[in-house]
Amino acid sequence: MSDVILEGRDLKKYYPVTKGLLQRTIGWVRAIDGISFTIERGKTLSLVGESGAGKTTAAKAVLLLERLTSGEILFEDRDIYKFSKSQMKAEYRPRVQSVQQNPWSSMNPRMRVRDIIAEPLVVNTKQTKEQIRKRVLELLEQVGLAPNQADYYPHEFSGGQRQRIAVARALALNPSLVVLDEPVSALDVSIRAQIMNLLKDLQNQFNLSYLVIAHNLATVRFMSHSVAIMYLGQIVEYGDAEELFQHPLHPYTRALISASMLTLPEDAEQGVEQIILKGEMPSPLNPPPGCRFHTRCSETQDICSKEVPEMKEYGKQHVRCHHVVYR
């Protein structure tokens, strides 16, 4: 049996839409609508989707920055919503850390790097100043920065170096799970490779689990062990990363992969065609009936607009679609 660190069960988050003086609720934005996933120890799960798919809401739920409408989050088999305040502070929050997308806004510009990295230690532990100082230097070394850079301010660093500082801060408390929200999308191409390699090395070194939020599929393939493709608040395909990239089963996954594929001019001449989806993602305020993807799907049938497809298992993958062709 694999070792599951975190499990999300049927997570839902609805935001009310209010109107008028009395703030009457006139509808709900279903940001995430019944998603389930598991993250194994030492492995990476990526949530992939376009803007508005609900991937960031899911990450916020895991970080307890949003209270869910319903659903259970189990951390090492215990329901975190049943934790007491002190349990939460001692047993959950220090062990689940995050790295944000933009290293320009995720750090206080008036704090030195030394203090930025030390802050989680000061807040959460009772270590002495000397212990903290040692730990900060150790962390800097682990992320590939020099010890003398501890006294610099964030503006003295490039984007890639700042993202290294953010990683060091996230690792300060020896977490088990790190939520990486678009960790490289704000960085330049040549710097992205450095950070992605670093994240992989740290994962192997400390047996970290990652929950990655991303929209770039190539990044996801490089980083992940398993992948969940999200569309309009639901997971449409979920499973082993390699299986999913080699044999995508949901039409949306296929379109997404096709849209991100390198198609050289001569490939196009040889008839390699890109799948171009029509239209745009509908509003989560008023999702289409039946399969949520049917309005843009090229393979849509009558049943798709009438019945909501259930999540079904095909080998290592789970797919929410009425007409999966499985080998």
Partner: peptide, 23 residues
């Protein structure tokens, strides 16, 4: 060459990316 090889590929699984040191 370095730029092209530092971009992860969608059509295969890389274990490590080629990275250009420095800035």
């Amino acid at each position: 060459n370095a730029l092209i090889h530092s971009v992860p590929r969608l059509d295969r699984k890389d274990d490590r990316l080629y990275s250009i040191e420095g800035q």
